[in-house]
Simulated scan of single mutants.
Amino acid sequence: MNPQQAHELVRAVFGDRVHAEVTGFPGGNLSLTVTGSRHSATVDGHPDTGWAYTIDPAEDDGFTGHDQAAGTLEEALRDIHERLAG
């Protein structure tokens, strides 16, 4: 998965309701920040090893890790969407 594909997946899950920033790294890892009007989420991972994410991370969380995990980026984004909609 490349950054453009990740952007397309965010749009497929959230539509135009969020802004996504995607950073790709040489090893294939991606880092995403998904920001809506009231909430945000960060997602980090690789298609081969899975995705970790945090919804509404605190400013002082830094690089302490994520509290949720998913096998695919789509699974992570759909869970984020569900939690924010609920």
Rank of each mutant, 00 (worst) to 15 (best):
1 M>L: 08
1 M>I: 07
1 M>T: 08
3 P>G: 01
5 Q>V: 09
6 A>S: 10
7 H>N: 11
10 V>I: 05
11 R>D: 06
12 A>D: 15
13 V>T: 03
15 G>T: 08
15 G>V: 06
17 R>N: 12
18 V>A: 02
18 V>L: 04
18 V>M: 02
19 H>M: 14
24 G>E: 10
24 G>F: 07
25 F>G: 02
28 G>S: 04
28 G>T: 05
29 N>I: 01
29 N>A: 12
30 L>W: 01
31 S>Y: 10
31 S>F: 13
31 S>P: 07
33 T>C: 12
34 V>N: 01
34 V>P: 02
35 T>V: 15
36 G>Q: 01
36 G>H: 06
38 R>D: 15
38 R>Q: 10
41 A>V: 09
41 A>W: 03
42 T>F: 11
44 D>P: 00
45 G>A: 08
49 T>H: 04
50 G>W: 00
50 G>I: 00
50 G>M: 03
51 W>Q: 01
51 W>N: 02
53 Y>Q: 06
55 I>V: 15
56 D>Q: 03
58 A>H: 15
58 A>Y: 13
61 D>Y: 06
66 H>R: 04
66 H>P: 05
67 D>A: 14
68 Q>V: 04
69 A>E: 13
69 A>M: 09
69 A>D: 10
70 A>N: 10
71 G>Y: 00
72 T>M: 02
73 L>P: 05
74 E>S: 13
74 E>V: 05
75 E>R: 11
77 L>W: 00
80 I>H: 03
80 I>Q: 06
81 H>N: 15
84 L>N: 08
85 A>N: 12
86 G>F: 01
86 G>D: 11
86 G>Y: 02
86 G>W: 02
